[in-house]
């Protein structure tokens, strides 16, 4: 499980670092968050008396990732309305 989490995390970081498309970068961020979720679930089985703290925190992370994705997509829509494309290299002006 930890190896899977590390693999997903590495894929997410590689996606963030190598992509120009803003939506692809957002997908990489989501991969990183899901890797953290896998880690929480993997370590949750070692809590005493069958505690569910790790699993509940995973749900919190999923909710926060959804909120962050909504805001990020709204920003990407704003970038597209101003620049005509979602290339992060082109979005280098504060205001036109």
């Amino acid at each position: 499980m930890l190896l899977l989490s590390a693999l997903v995390f590495c894929c997410g970081v590689y996606t963030i670092l190598t992509r120009k498309n803003a939506v692809s970068i957002l997908m990489g961020v989501e991969l990183v968050l899901n890797a953290a979720n896998i880690n929480f679930v993997a370590f949750a089985q070692y809590t005493r008396n069958g505690g569910i703290h790790g699993n509940v925190f995973t749900i919190f992370v999923i909710l926060l990732a959804a909120a962050e994705a909504a805001v990020a997509l709204a920003i990407i829509i704003g970038i597209y309305q101003n620049f005509g494309k979602v290339d992060v290299d082109q979005a280098d002006l504060m205001k036109e």
Binding site: L63, L64, A70, L73, A74
Partner: peptide, 30 residues
């Protein structure tokens, strides 16, 4: 045990969605 935490996160999610809808709106310039 986690009722208040989930309620707070749901309010945060609602605020995030409202903010996203506000950011993504298209202004009508006359």
């Amino acid at each position: 045990d986690y009722l208040f935490a989930f309620e707070a996160v749901s309010v945060l999610l609602l605020a995030a969605l409202v903010g996203a809808a506000f950011l993504a709106r298209k202004e009508v310039r006359e």
